[in-house]
Structures are given as C-alpha cells and as structure tokens.
Design a protein around this nucleic acid. Structure first.
Length: 596
DNA sequence: CTAGGGTTAG
C-alpha cells in the first residue's frame, strides 16, 4: 500500500513539476500545490523550491513567503528564489535583507544569490547597500563570477558610481566578460551622462576584433549614448549595425533610433523611423511627441497625441509631460493649462511636480508671471522638486525683467542647500541684467564662500565622428586652427556690427598647451562656447551641410541673435541643441520664432 | 529548482 503510493508519487511528480514551470497564473500554481500536498511530497526541499519559484513567477510573493515560512528545511535555492521574488515584486530592500536571514540560518549564498542581491541594490540605486553585497561576494569568492560581476557593474552604474563600475569591469577575467558585461558597462556610462566614454568602450570592443556580435541590448545602449551626446556620425554607423544584424523590427531599438535622430537634430529621420513601427506602444509615441515638442512643432505634437489616443494607446505620465512641453515651447498656453487640469479626469493620471513645473514654466515663458506664481504656490510642491519649480520661475522673471518677482522666487530658492548652483547663477544674472551689478557680485561671492561650484557651460560639435568640446572664453590647444577660428569670429563680429549687433563674439583667449583654464572669477564670461563651436564648424564643415552644435545649458539670447545673423551672412543652416530644445537657424531667422 | 543587461522625461 505504502509502496504503491510512493510509486504513484514518483510518476506524477515530474508531471506536476512541469505543470508548475509552465504556470503563469496564481490559480494553476495553487491547484498544483494542492495536488502535491495530496501526494504527500510537498515536504521535500526540491518540490517546495519549485513551488516557491512558481509563486514568485506569477507575482504572488505573499504565497511564496507563506510556503517558505512553513518549510522545515531550506537550502540556498529556497532563499534565492524568495529573494528573486521580492526583487522582482518591487520590494528590493526586503530582498537584500534576506542575505542576513540566510546567514543566521546557516545557509551559504552562491553566485545566484549574489547576482540577485546586486540587482536588487541596482533597483534601489543604493551604492552603500550595494557595496556591502559586493564585499560579501568578494569574501565568498563570487565577485569575479561573470554574472555576479556584471550585476555589480550594473548596480554601481545605476547608483551613480561609474568609477566603481569600471573597477569591477576591469577586475573581471577577460574570459568572463561577455556581451552582457560589455553592454552593462556601456549603459553605466550612458546612464551617467558619459556618452562619449560609452562610445569609446564600444569602439574598443570593436577595434579589438572581439568575436562578439552586438545584440539588441548593446546596440540600444550605444544608441542611447549617441543620443545623449548628439553623436550623429556614430549613431548612423550603429543604425547600420542594427540593419546588418536584423534588429530593425525590435521596438526598443526603434525607440532608441527615434530618440537618437531627434536628439542629433534630425527630426525627419526620427519621424521616418517612427512611421515604420507597426503598432507603436506608448513609449515610441511618447518619444516622437517629445521630439516634436523640442522642435517647437506644438500643433503637430498635439496631433500625434490625439492619433495615439485614437489608436487606443493609454498615455502615461511621461507622455503628458511631453504634450505639456509641446504646448509650452509653442506658446499654446491655454491648451496646456486645460490639459494640466483635465489629465486626472480624462486619462487617470495625477499631475506631479514635473507637470506643475512644466506648466509654471509655460506661463512664465509667456510672461503670465502672476498666474505662474499662483500655480506654483497652489501646487504645494516640496523637496528637491520645489527647487526646480522656483528656479524655472526665477529665469522667467529675468527674461521678462520682473526683478521684484525674481527676488521672491530667489528667496524660495535660497532655502535650499543642495544643488542650488544653477539657481544662484540665475539670480546673479537677474541682478546683472537689471543693472544691479553689486548685488550680482554679492551672489557670486556668497557662492564662493559656501564652496558652491557650478558645472561650466560647454558646447561641442562632431566633425568626422570626433567630438570637439569648447568652454566659454577660451580656445585650446593653441594651433593654427585656433588662430584661424579667432580671426573668423572677429570677422563675423564686424559684419554683424553693420547689421546693428551689439554683443561681442570675438576675442576669446587662445590657451597654450600647458596652461590650465582658470576659475571663472566673476559674472562676466568671455565668448560663449556655442559660438566657438560654430566657428570651428564654419571653418571645416563643407558649405551645403548643416552645422550641428550641442550645448549643456540653455542658449542665451545674445548668442541666439548672433546665430540668426550669421546664418544670413554666410547663407548656411545651423541646428543648435540646448538643454531643452532645438533651434534651427536659416536665412537670418530661427525655427523657434524667438519664443523659447 | 535560484542569477546579470536595453527604450520615453528630468
């Protein structure tokens, strides 16, 4: 009798296990669980582990936990399965905490455990916790395992510690570095605004002739890097690889391409790629809407949005932000306000800080500053989000020369202690443009006293696939080209004077090779970096080709004016990507119609 | 039986 029931169990078990592996819903896992209980075999560690994993896969960590708690014996697989369940179920902190639990239970973690724990830390973007996991993995001898090390690279990258990520990557045995490891290191760079380094690493992999076909993960990471830094040349080359390796139907790749072309100043290509996507989901739609917004094509962005809704695609919070941006950059202020106030009822999305900031910016840009202040106060935003909101108001006040309101916004800003550099510079510039240079200088000396430094503004231009970066007021290294560049800008300045231009674009210093750039001493900086980049473009990019310049800050109105004039003088097209949007200069005017 | 990577915004 007993022998026959054991025999039945032995034949049924593999079947039930197979059933579990294919199960994706709670009901079928539960019913298999019941059958296993009837057979009396559930108490073995292996069958319980199968059940644990199945509960986690179908998203019911609570059931998994119950089962786990009732297990008389647990091994490393049981612990790791549960950990993976927590990590995937949006409770990464609980996942990592299990590491301590298993130590108490006397179970030794393995490579699976550490990679799961590291990936949980990545989700948390918590370098401190991640470092502890790293240390434990090191002690246990798993830190150089291919998967564990790759998870650590990803973790450090997501936690903003690129240097640590690179250290783990470099410490891996060469044989352990596979496509995933390389792709993870590239995304670590790309996600930390170090796109040029991501591209260099990609090139390194390429030039070493490693026999590693780029998969769609790697290609989208690199494409993302190209988008971030506006490297059209490399981006096109990567597009070619996408074709050669047959990834052009992949939607994630297509989105990366849409994004890359739009951020490199090629809206038309971006739109072409988008139009080839068969059934675009919310992300490609959002991407093209944001792109359209950045080119100042507000009406077109709104049309794309209504297409999307007609197709039954649910917008998300990012989509609505994109649509608000479109309204903002095109002066469709009342449409934008209606959208803000109806997004909850129409699309079920609660406006959050970024939506309010965008709307406040839209009102401010349009000069409706009283309304902007009212909305800013009503929105009840606090924390770091509030800094963004008030900084944006501050720059609107400056643009519309409303010093009294600027001071109010400035007071709000000065309550913050972190990341205030940008706002303080805006405040100083506000005083400067109102002619109060002493107040402006006071803000600077206050910043110096508090040790607050601002990332310098810079611009860059890609020439024959190589980026050239410029900082305000200086050209280096000293070379024949540098001198030619200065002469050209002087010449342009002269021609612009005849057309009534009052700014100054020549006279940057040429730095000698061994000379270090000094700290900016005061409010006045020299020639802005975008003009230097433009000058190089004029020197070396053949006539007939558009010159594309990228900048890490917003374009100032003097430079904007200069670009317009020069486009008329030399009869060429320039595309400038600034922090927020694109400007397309042609025949003396700009696509933004001076509204930005 | 348990593990790592990619897309939209800021």
């Amino acid at each position: 009798m007993a022998a026959s029931s054991t025999a039945v169990a032995a034949t049924l078990m593999p079947l039930l296990i197979r059933l579990l592996r294919g199960a994706s819903d709670l009901a079928s896992v539960s019913s298999t669980h019941a059958k296993l209980l009837k057979l009396g075999t559930v108490s073995t560690v292996a069958s319980s582990n199968h059940l644990l994993a199945a509960y986690c896969r179908c998203g019911s960590v609570a059931h998994a936990r119950n089962l786990f708690d009732g297990m008389p014996e647990r091994n490393v697989v049981s612990w790791t399965a549960l950990m993976s369940g927590y990590a995937g179920g949006g409770r990464p902190r609980a996942a990592v905490a299990l590491l301590r639990g298993m130590a108490r239970g006397g179970v030794a973690p393995n490579a699976f455990t550490f990679s799961t724990a590291a990936s949980a830390c990545a989700r948390l973007a918590d370098a401190c916790l991640g470092r502890q996991v790293h240390a434990r993995a090191e002690v246990a001898g798993y830190a150089r395992d291919s998967v564990v090390a790759t998870a650590l690279v990803d973790m450090y990258g997501k936690a903003g510690r690129v240097g640590d990520a690179r250290e783990v990557f470099d410490g891996m045995p060469a044989a352990a570095r596979n496509t995933v490891s390389w792709a993870s290191m590239m995304s670590a760079y790309a996600q930390n605004a170090l796109g040029h380094d991501a591209i260099l690493l990609f090139a390194e992999l390429w030039n070493n002739g490693e026999d590693m076909a780029p998969n769609h993960f790697m290609l989208s990471s690199v494409m993302n890097a190209c988008a971030g830094v506006g490297r059209l040349g490399i981006g096109r080359c990567v597009h070619g690889m996408v074709f050669r390796h047959g990834h052009e139907e992949n939607e994630v790749i297509a989105v990366a391409l849409v994004d890359m072309y739009s951020k490199c100043g090629c809206y038309d290509y971006s739109k072409k790629v988008f139009d080839r996507i068969k059934q675009p989901s919310v992300i490609p739609y959002t991407s093209i809407i944001v792109a359209t917004a950045k080119y100042g094509l507000g009406k077109r962005a709104l049309a794309l949005f209504s297409d999307m809704v007609d197709q039954g695609v649910q917008p998300n919070s990012v989509t609505l932000l994109g649509v608000l941006h479109a309204c903002s950059h095109s002066g469709l202020v009342d449409t934008g306000l209606q959208l803000l106030h109806s997004m909850r009822s129409k699309y079920g999305i609660n406006p959050c800080a970024s939506h309010y900031t965008c709307a406040v910016d839209m009102l401010g840009r349009a000069g409706r500053l009283e309304e902007a202040f009212k909305l800013a106060n009503e929105a009840q935003i606090d924390g770091d989000d509030a800094l963004m909101l008030w900084s944006s108001l501050l720059s609107s006040c400056r643009k519309h020369k409303r010093l009294e309101l600027a001071t109010m916004a400035g007071e709000k800003v000065s309550e913050f202690t972190q990341d205030v550099a940008g706002a303080l510079v805006a405040m100083s510039n506000t005083y400067a443009s109102a002619g109060q240079s002493e107040d402006a200088a006071a803000v600077w000396s206050n910043m110096r006293r508090r040790g607050i430094r601002k990332d310098p503004g810079c611009s860059w231009i890609e020439i024959k696939d190589i980026p050239y970066v410029f900082y305000a007021g200086v050209v280096s290294p000293a070379s024949e080209k540098a001198r030619e560049l200065m002469l050209l800008l002087d010449e342009m300045e002269g021609k612009m004077r005849e057309k009534g231009y009052k700014g100054r674009i020549g006279g940057a210093r040429v730095l000698d090779a061994d000379e270090e750039e000094e700290e900016g001493e005061g409010v006045m900086v020299g020639v802005h970096s975008e003009l230097l980049a433009l000058g190089l473009g004029l020197l070396v990019i053949p006539k007939g080709m558009a010159i594309r310049v990228m900048k890490n800050l917003r374009m100032c109105s003097d430079c904007h004016e200069a670009f317009k004039l020069i486009s008329g003088i030399v009869e060429r097209e320039f595309v400038v990507r600034d922090l927020n949007r694109f400007h397309h200069f042609r025949m003396g005017s700009c696509s933004c119609n001076d509204y930005w």
